[in-house]
């Protein structure tokens, strides 16, 4: 048996697929923004030495890293609707679920980054009379962030691929758009191959940008300096 590729379907639906890819990028960008803010707060909470705060932060990280994202998406979307009696906009649920999930991973990335900063940095800052918060903000976190860039890059890529899961709550992102197209005309191979390539182009582009940022941080180190 031989299979004849028929690309007309993909061609006709290309605008739709590209629009859906844009939704995928939007989901990724919003979720990572939430993830970074949440992750920073949670990693600080874990290291603050304030017991209840550290406990809550650890529980959050454990839960969202220890359960499947797919379950979390259902939990957040349908959980809200049964709890509050209204169904949230799927896109909002999707961003929330992805962001909260990502926050748990980013928290661990930042914790590693902060712990990798030499202890002497905190001591020097404290010895100048700066508070713990000031020392963190001005001295430790900027260095930790630089250390964390490669791992954060990986997290963005993982997150972008994970956005395909929100198809299950009918957000029309790239994966779901593909399902809708093949639902009407079942050319599975062509459509899913195209989708795979579009995902790949996006992840590869992100990897490229992160690599450039990494190199700039490493060699340029401190922005534009003559040398």
């Amino acid at each position: 048996m031989s299979y004849t590729f028929q690309w007309y379907l993909v061609q006709n639906n290309m605008p739709k697929l590209l629009a859906a890819a844009l939704v995928t990028l939007e989901l990724t960008a919003l979720a990572i923004a939430i993830g970074v803010v949440l992750g920073l707060l949670v990693s600080l909470a874990r290291m603050s030495g304030v017991k209840p705060l550290a406990w809550v932060a650890s529980a959050y990280v454990d839960f969202f890293r220890g359960t499947p994202l797919l379950v979390q998406i259902f939990l957040i979307h349908y959980g809200v609707s049964s709890f509050f009696g209204y169904t949230p906009v799927p896109f909002i649920s999707a961003v929330a679920a992805l962001g909260i999930n990502s926050g748990a991973y980013v928290a661990e990335i930042f914790r590693g980054g902060i712990q990798a900063v030499d202890r002497g940095q905190m001591e020097a800052a404290r010895s100048l009379g700066m508070s713990w918060g000031q020392s963190m903000r001005h001295v430790v976190i900027p260095q930790a962030f630089r250390i964390s860039v490669p791992a954060l890059g990986n997290e963005v890529i993982a997150l972008l691929k994970d956005t395909s899961l929100v198809a299950v709550i009918s957000v029309v992102e790239l994966m779901n758009q593909g399902r809708l197209i093949v639902g009407r005309t079942p050319r599975y191979l062509e459509v899913y191959l195209t989708i795979a390539i579009l995902y790949f182009v996006m992840t590869k582009s992100i990897a490229f940008l992160v690599g450039r940022l990494e190199r700039r941080l490493k060699t340029g180190d401190h922005g534009n300096r003559p040398l």
Binding site: R126, S127, L128, G129
Partner: peptide, 26 residues
């Protein structure tokens, strides 16, 4: 600590700040 300055064996300068930036931060 504002009254008591400390100089460390390994300097512990802030690597992401210039010499001047190290001094002005506190």
């Amino acid at each position: 600590r504002r009254e008591v300055g400390m100089v460390f064996q390994r300097f512990n300068l802030f690597p992401h700040k210039t010499a001047l930036g190290n001094i002005t931060l506190a």
